[in-house]
């Protein structure tokens, strides 16, 4: 039952329920599979063989198997190669901590006062003088009347 080109269903793990083809027989326990699943080594006990057998060479490439799967109306797994990305540069923790402090200091700064005009100053002085003047008490008012 286990032979190169045999269609199987994987019954264990993350690829369970997906169809695959045996590409190579590694030993009496393990085989190499490819197809809807990832191309990987697999235990025979984790495969459920189907009736169909595909004509596939030993150790056939992923592209050959994809073509064969397309004939059957199945879609082989496409693994995109990872694009190279630049490694993020590590920043010192001290520098990171200092930055927000600066922002806080800026926020606390009071807004600049508008330049006081001469007329404004005179008004303020007038108001202060009025406050300083003692109010006439009730006794003083009576004495004045007499």
């Amino acid at each position: 039952m286990i032979e190169i080109g045999r269609l199987c269903v994987k019954t264990a793990g993350r690829d369970a329920g997906l169809k695959c083809v045996i590409v190579d027989i590694l030993d009496n326990k393990f085989v190499l599979i490819d197809g809807e699943t990832r191309r990987r080594k697999c235990n025979i006990l984790h495969l459920e063989p189907l009736k169909d057998v595909i004509k596939v060479k030993k150790n056939a490439s992923h592209e050959d198997i994809r073509k064969e799967f397309e004939k059957l109306g199945l879609k082989a797994m496409d693994t995109k190669p990872k694009q190279k990305t630049e490694r993020p540069v590590k920043q010192n923790k001290r520098e990171l901590k200092e930055e927000p402090k600066k922002k806080k200091a800026d926020a606390k700064k009071p807004a600049k006062r508008e330049k006081e005009t001469e007329s404004g100053i005179e008004e303020k002085i007038g108001a202060l003088e009025e406050k300083k003047k003692p109010k006439k008490s009730a006794k003083n008012a009576k004495q004045e009347k007499k």
């Binding site: 269903v9 019954t11 369970a16 459920e48 189907l50």
Partner: peptide, 16 residues
């Protein structure tokens, strides 16, 4: 569980 899942998948595969 893994056992029940396997039983289900094998049953489906055999019905194909």
């Amino acid at each position: 569980c893994s056992k029940c899942m396997r039983i289900l998948i094998v049953k489906r595969a055999r019905s194909l």
